[in-house]
């Protein structure tokens, strides 16, 4: 399977390494043409304001929205979760998202960098060690959204159809359970 990783800003190299270690081929996505050859897309951690700005400047914003609407499997971590949210709070004034998951995400919800933390949690029943960095959380989910993890009383991993989002960064750890789930449970069979 060919997996695109949006490579505008952020930790896209870590997602590429994680994807390759799961036995798939990762490619960097910087243009709309790059989107045509992929079976799935990953939106990395980084600054959501920077990533959305660059996606608009380089004509990726509308094509990514179209791909999401047509059912392309997409996984977003941290900033990627924000980008997949239909609604955000505490964002930059007027901040856009690609959207797709019927949820409200609070940006930097766990606090500033001094509040960034590591914690053990359950992801879809599997125990894993999660790294949260200036992380968002899911303030509320709408219809059709499945919650896969919680931390501190908030949803931190969710799925709606072919879209998966986590507040934390599995790409910074060696546990590939979230990536495996994305590839095996969401991408496979399409």
């Amino acid at each position: 399977m060919i997996v695109g990783v949006l490579a505008l800003q952020g930790d896209f190299r870590e997602h590429i390494a994680a994807t390759n270690s799961c036995g798939h081929s990762a490619v960097e996505i910087r243009t709309a043409e790059d989107l045509e050859k992929i079976d799935a897309l990953i939106l990395p951690g980084g600054e959501s304001t920077t990533i959305i700005q660059l996606s608009e400047l380089f004509d990726l914003y509308a094509p990514i929205r179209t791909k999401i609407a047509k059912g392309l499997p997409v996984y977003g971590s941290c900033a990627g979760m924000i980008l997949l949210a239909d609604r955000i709070v505490d964002g930059k004034e007027g901040q856009k998202t690609f959207g797709g998951i019927n949820m409200t995400v609070r940006r930097n919800a766990f606090g500033r960098q001094v509040d960034s933390f590591e914690s053990d949690l359950k992801f879809n029943g599997h125990s894993l060690h999660a790294v949260f960095i200036r992380a968002p959380w899911v303030e509320e989910v709408g219809e059709g959204v499945q919650v896969l993890s919680e931390a501190a009383g908030h949803a931190v991993a969710v799925r709606q159809g072919n879209l998966l989002a986590t507040s934390f960064h599995p790409e910074l750890t060696s546990d590939m359970a979230v990536h495996e789930y994305f590839f095996e449970e969401i991408c496979k069979g399409r």
């Binding site: 952020g10 509040d115 960034s116 790294v131 960095i133």
Partner: peptide, 24 residues
């Protein structure tokens, strides 16, 4: 951040991880 009991702040991983997010 609310404590869940097992959480650790200020670790080398979250400090270095923050810089990873600034890349590019």
């Amino acid at each position: 951040s609310q404590n869940t009991g097992s959480e650790a702040t200020g670790t080398a991983r979250v400090k270095r991880g923050m810089a990873e997010m600034l890349k590019g």
